[in-house]
Nucleic acid binder design. Structure first.
Lengths: 336, 336
DNA sequence: TTGCGAAATGACAACGTTGTCATTTCGTTA
DNA sequence: TAACGAAATGACAACGTTGTCATTTCGCAA
């Protein structure tokens, strides 16, 4: 039928319409300066008229690269938004798009499985966002020709890794307490399987032990306010408890509410520090001092690391992005 | 050099190594049942030995499709996480990967621009997540051969759209107040440019007007608790204010705190409803009744809509995902 | 005008798959 | 054992680009 158009307009169609060769059309796209202006205009008109759009597959096939970075989300949490934001912005800036796959709820995805799936997709390199332990972490070997960066606090034997310095952040918070004259610091953890929680706990322990202080038994939470509240009720009964480090702000708020309900004041009676600095969004005039990680920066670094390693996939590096202590008034100075 | 291997292993290399034809290797991958078991094993061994990985570009070029859906993030907010989660899970389930690009901070991206960039990437269809107005919304025409779904509360003349029923959710909350004997409802809005905020306000207005109630002047907030607190201080002085609908939970909490600071009790003196049902994460024993939208479901619907439309890109539909009122105890029953 | 080097353009192969169609091999029955 | 249909395999073209190298055209000086 006359109305039955060919589905896709190719460079060849454009070339014919413009009365030039295929290669000239290619040049108009890739090296326009090497084409005379009059020719360029003809080609542009033809492209416009036919509605030409370059074919990604053909182009990639010839070039041997895709201009895409794969992102595997093993876990999608609040902080992940900002991280993805950073990855996406950095990718954009460097002319890359992102190809994304996600571990499905309930599914148990290994690194090897993730790598296998990713390597079937259009990617030049990949980023794994891994916030929980995974079975094959230590034995995993990335494809030799596909730069792989893992966002995780653990060190990996062969892959580059990028992480917030969670341990350092926790240490910083603890030292802040100690430098303000506190003799001990209690800790409320997040979910057991979370690497963030584990690292924060580790930093807390290390900071105390470095001063010769025996860390008290940590209280187990689950990230939500109610678990912090429960912990707070327990802590309110401990006479030696002047400082509490909670593994996130929501639990810190729970702790503070429990203390208040028990007749204790923050910071006069007990000082509290949280993590993530997000309480101000929900609580008016929030006083909570908090350790904030720069998730956006983390994403940017991860992407840059991948791009930098595209030519040398087997290179290996370790990047730590430091946290920041956002000071408010939930910590009392016991000195003097 | 002897150690200098060819960069990429092709099906041809596998074929030679296995002593079969190129096409047989192809068949082992795509229709394994049509290959004798002994042959299949030979091929598999060869693939293993050489480290073969199918070339995405070549495959897509031949097939004329990518198995990827493009996602354009005009705006990356909290609720977006769950939505992306839904999109990704649904994609996974249907055998699609996601290709993602993001509007960069400060950049002013139009729909046309987004479509242009996406159509250079490996995608069979695309989803735009659009939560704020954009200049060319009404005039935009999607590429004829690329199914396009826009996640937005506005209706679009030619594209399919998917949205939470924000207006309906707000109406539901208002009617809940009215059915509990309240004679009027005050409203605290989110950021002016947010379509969510606009729709929620519209639903609030509609519900009141439907009962012949003149809506009071809405109070302008910015999504954060402090702005809710400010609004709450104002509302505390209005004797006729028994019910407040805040455009999100954080502001609702701000309102509640202000009321409390002014000596008013929730729900005894004033009733409050919020949106998004996320206060319980941060506040222990939260009492806030809230309208919750099913963002995950929204993502799933959007993806399904794209996939369903792959064969008929010009089809057009409108999907609304209803919200749910999560009842707690922040609303007082004034009847009886 | 002619000649010359540089600029612009073109012909053709190649990237690594899959579809079409032809050919070979196999298992079964006469 | 021959003959046959079905199953398995193979040869070759094609998808739409870009790189290589050859050819044509241009601008300028002699």
């Amino acid at each position: 039928m006359a109305t039955m158009d060919k589905k896709n307009v190719s460079m060849n169609d454009v070339a014919v319409a413009a009365g030039v060769s295929l290669k000239t059309v290619s040049r108009v796209i890739n090296e326009p300066d090497s084409v005379r202006e009059s020719t360029r205009d003809k080609v542009h008109s033809a492209m416009e008229a036919l509605g030409f759009r370059a074919n990604f597959a053909a182009r990639s096939l010839k070039l041997g690269r895709y201009g895409c970075i794969g992102v595997v989300l093993f876990h999608l949490s609040g902080g992940a938004v900002d991280m993805i934001d950073g990855i996406a912005d950095a990718a954009e800036e460097r002319g890359f798009a992102l190809t994304m796959i996600k571990k499905r709820a309930g599914e148990k995805m290994t690194l090897a499985e993730a790598a296998r799936r990713m390597s079937q997709l259009p990617v030049d390199g990949m980023i794994f966002n891994l916030r929980q332990m995974v079975d094959d972490f230590d034995t995993f070997e990335a494809p030799k020709d596909l730069k792989t960066v893992i966002i995780t606090p653990m060190e990996h034997p062969t892959c580059s890794t990028v992480s917030d310095d969670q341990e350092g952040g926790a240490r910083m918070a603890c030292e802040y307490f100690l430098n303000h004259g506190h003799k001990n610091v209690y800790f409320v953890s997040g979910k057991k399987e979370s690497l963030s929680s584990q690292c924060r706990m580790k930093g807390w322990r290390a900071a105390l032990e470095a001063r010769g202080i025996e860390p008290p038994e940590p209280l187990q939470g689950d990230w939500n306010a109610d678990s912090g509240y429960a912990a707070g009720l327990v802590l309110a009964d401990k006479p030696d408890c002047t400082a509490v480090l909670a593994a996130n702000d929501c639990m810190a708020n729970g702790v503070m509410m429990a203390l208040r309900d028990k007749g204790l004041n923050v910071p006069d009676d007990v000082s509290v520090i949280g993590f993530d600095d997000e309480l101000y969004k929900t609580i008016p005039n929030s006083i909570l001092t908090s350790v904030k990680f720069r998730h956006r920066e983390l994403g940017i670094r991860a992407l840059n690391e991948v791009v930098a390693g595209l030519e040398a996939p087997s290179s290996r590096s370790r990047t730590l992005v430091s946290g920041v202590l956002v000071e408010r008034s939930s910590v009392r100075d016991l000195r003097a």
